[in-house]
Amino acid sequence: MSALRILVPIKRVLDYAIKPRIAASGKAIDLTGQKMSLNPFDELSIEASVRLREEHKTRIEDILAFSAGPQKSQDALRTAMAMGADRGLLVDTATTELEPLAVAKILKRVVEKEKSNLVILGKQSIDDDAGQTGQMLAGLLGWGQATQAADIKLEGDTVTVVKEVDGGTETVKGKLPMVVTTDLRLNEPRYASLPNIMKAKKKKLEQIPLKDYGEGLEGRLEVLQLVEPPPRQGGGKVADVSGMISKLKELGAL
């Protein structure tokens, strides 16, 4: 039974309660001065890894929270550490935007260097909604993967994952090493307690510049434009029941 070294990749994104505004360029979201938080799916991944430790105690050797992003991503990593990750690793991308394949390539090198044997990550980040990184990483590593996890069980070197699929769940089983992506019903993430927030400040947070990860990370796509969803059509009022019936008929609902 191998010791577990868990890698939890996370991302700092525009807080989901904030309405995104398109920047003047029309090609990006304006993030200046906006509230940024941890990607909600990533909270689930951290919670899942911390619960694995609570269940399996000493067998969990390490929980490493990872992020590739600007300097400010340190906040997200500190939050992850306050929730229970042991240390943090930030690949400083400065202003470079990474596509999922580039992130997966970086993660592959992190996995190899850190000897991780379980990667738990959100099924998508709510800013780009690409939903690709986990799958690409599993492909690059040649590992098994279980996506959209609603439950994760570890017995020996076997990982059993309940997956959310259309109309229900699908339960799959695989051997370590493995990539698991998290979905909504997996757990209810904890609040970091003050003592843990303070302890997190003293935990190790390593920083590596993006260039140390070599070539092949450049983007392949160009954003042409961002468009807001069409505004909702306002409702109308009808005077009485017969008015309503005729309106419904007019709309073809009757």
């Binding site: 807080d15 989901y16 309660a17 904030i18 509230k35 938080s37 941890l38 909600p40 939050t79 609040y191 970091a192 307690s193 003050l194 003592p195 927030i197 303070m198």
Partner: peptide, 27 residues
């Protein structure tokens, strides 16, 4: 806020606490 909470903990005025990390947690 961080400094205040740290002082409150260290001086044992409060027992525990948490801070909202996102808008959702604020609400």
């Amino acid at each position: 806020v961080g400094a205040l909470l740290q002082n409150l903990m260290e001086d044992e005025i409060i027992l525990d606490g948490t801070m909202a990390e996102s808008e959702a947690q604020v609400r």
